[in-house]
Structures are given as C-alpha cells and as structure tokens.
Design a protein around this nucleic acid. Sequence first.
DNA 1: AACTGTGAAGTTTTTCACAGCC
DNA 2: GGCTGTGAAAAACTTCACAGTT
Lengths: 210, 210
Amino acid sequence: MPSNIVPSNIPDIVIGRLPIYLRALTRLEQEGREVTSSHELGQRLGISSAQIRKDLSHFGGFGKQGTGYQISYLIDQLKQVLKIDREWDVALVGAGDLGHAVANYRGFSDRGFRIVAVFDNDSAKIGQAVGKLTVRAFSEMEAFVREHNIKVAMIAVPAQNAQDVADQLIKAGVRAILNYAPISLNVPTGVYVQYIDPVVHLQRMTYYLD
Amino acid sequence: MPSNIVPSNIPDIVIGRLPIYLRALTRLEQEGREVTSSHELGQRLGISSAQIRKDLSHFGGFGKQGTGYQISYLIDQLKQVLKIDREWDVALVGAGDLGHAVANYRGFSDRGFRIVAVFDNDSAKIGQAVGKLTVRAFSEMEAFVREHNIKVAMIAVPAQNAQDVADQLIKAGVRAILNYAPISLNVPTGVYVQYIDPVVHLQRMTYYLD
DNA sequence: AACTGTGAAGTTTTTCACAGCC
DNA sequence: GGCTGTGAAAAACTTCACAGTT
C-alpha cells in the first residue's frame, strides 16, 4: 500500500504558500478556533478561496465538504508536507549585528528550526557569547557541519564573503541556505537558496508610490 | 512629446525582479565592468536571458543590439523606474533586538532609503539611542509621520501589535510597509506590504530536503 | 445550507526563435 | 558574430463553476 508516495510535481509556487497558510492557521488556533474554511483563510491572507483549496488538494483531501478544515489536523498535515514535523538544526554564519539579531530571534524554535552553532572568522568575536551559543571559528565550520549532519544554514556575512561561505557550507553537506547578504549565490542543483534583502522589498514597493 | 508616460500595466512580477537586476548590475559596476548582456546577467542570477530582455523591454530599449547594456546607464534607468533616483525617508517601529539590527544595517542608505525615526511604546526604551537615532514614543508617531510626509515604514514589533501599528501608520499617510512581524496584515488598496519572515523562507526549503 | 475538491476555462508568465541592428 | 527587442507559441498558474458530501 504505497500511501507515502511523495507527489512529485507540486509547483514551487504552491510550496511557497504553504508556510503562509500554516502561519495563519497557527494564529487561528491560538485564537481558540477549531475549524476554518478556505474562504475565511483566504480573506485573512488576501488569497482566493479557490486557490487555497486547489493548493491543499495537491496533497490530499484535508477538508470536509460542508464543514471546512479542522485546524489542528490541517496544521499537522502541512507540517508533515513541509517536513517540519521534526526540528532542523541550523548553522548560522556571521556574528555581526545581523548575526546577533538572527541568533536572538525567538521565532525559530517553535516553528521547526534550532540554531545550533554560530561561526565567524573575526578572531575578536570567536569565543564570545551570542545568545546561548558561543561563536566558533570559521575554520571549524566544515567539520562541525559535517559531523552534526547539518542541512540548513543561514548566511549573515558581508556580501563579498557570502559566496565563499556558501561554497564551504555546501561542501560540508548543507542543502538549504537562507542568505541575508545582498547578493545572488551560485549553487549546484539540489541546493536551495532563499534570500532576505530588505532593500529589495522596499524597492519593489516604491515603484507604486507617486 | 509625451516621453514621460508611465507604462500603466507592468506585471508586478516584473517589478519584483527589477531590484534583483539592479543589485547584480551594481555589483558588476563595482567589479569595474562597463557593459553586460542579458545572457551574462541571466547566468549570474539563474534567470533566462529572454526573460531579462523582455522585462527590460517593458520600459523601453535600454540595450544596443550586438553590444548589450551599458551598466551605468541601465542602473540609472532602473533607479528611475523604481523611483529610487531619490532618497525615501523611512520610519522604523520597534526598538527591540530586531529593530536595533534593522536600524544599524548599513545597506539602506546607498540604495535609496534612510531611516529617519525609530518608535517604540516601551517607556524604558524611549530616549535610548539606536544607532544615530533616539527612540521616540509611539504616541508621537502619527504626528511625526504626517509632518515629515513619510510614505515608507518598517514594522519590527511583536506579531500581536503589528496590525495596530500598521493601522496607525496608514492613518498617518504611510503607503508602503515592510513587515518583519510574522503575521499577514490587512491593508486598504493603495497601500503596499512586503513581508520578511525568515521561518517562512526556511520552511519553503525543507520541503525539498530528504 | 455550507463547503470541499476538481475538471475546464481563462489569464498570466515564460520561452522560443528570429528579424534587425551594431 | 553577437546581441537586443518582440511577436508568436508554449507552459504555468489562477479562477470559475458545479457535482458531490456532510
């Protein structure tokens, strides 16, 4: 009974919306709600109800006709789809202002991620505390990442160092990189990169202003 | 000679790529390059050359056949299109860890944005220094934003306060919001929101991991 | 009565491929 | 020979609208 077949061709754009749905569902649950509908969810998110239904239908029937979706069940299912029904260990590279802010951000742990190490190449920073962690030498990174089988990393170093850091992370086995440096990374297939560049977001909006 | 007509129906997805092009072009310029091609740019960004050409063609012919694009000229043109051929004053709301990191981020000023005020409602924080700025009381926000005609703001407060903050910013005249809080905002038409939620980006990648 | 799941229709976005220019 | 700009074709994505279920 092949019930655990992974549907192989889900559009990436659909995957990208699932975390948004999950976030909204978690919020609904916190508000004490037990059931919701594609319509309600869509209203909150500014997305059409049809789109939400179609997105979810890629993974099976999570809802009940006439009733809607049971929130806790849908949350569990989405977590499973996104593979955050487990906790991912994450390496953080860069212990500057940005690295500190990322390391101290409380929002990771309850959503599937745990920063387990911080690396920097500045000898003045090595050994310093960052949150509950101690900054490790950049030279130890590859061995550490490999040894702990870390697959997810965040890059918070200056743009000029980001590609080097990415190359080393990938060499050590990292497969998913969240890049805070304002530069596009070249990575081999099978490695995934997401970008956080606040200026890009701002520039995207000013186009629409007078 | 109506040369300054604004092409009215450019897809948003195209607008969203322009800041990426701009970032790559700026980097090429820093490397001392003077000319590039849609092919080269595409390689660097992992985007097809045809797409880059088509995107740019929405705004006029920026390139030369046989030659490519003159980098400094294209940068100027893109800045104009994105309306960052000027400097936008930005209000920052929230002076916690995240607010501090945002305020201290060096990358805004040379890319069109300047943080001119930081607001928080925690009386322990009001009056404190954040970078070169002093934290102002949240109660002064509306008047300040209105008086200085601020159109762009960043929200770095806890999720539970984000909608309230957004409402007040909008009331004061803000039209573009970069929201760091992990929650979807409801805003009227004519107001633009972009989101930065690192966890959403991470969750989007783990789907593809084993 | 309310709501899902889904083929089919409609729309948007991307890619193709080539004429035209340097 | 190399490259842009662009119609036309292809692919991807969203919405429609409704049968079917609770």
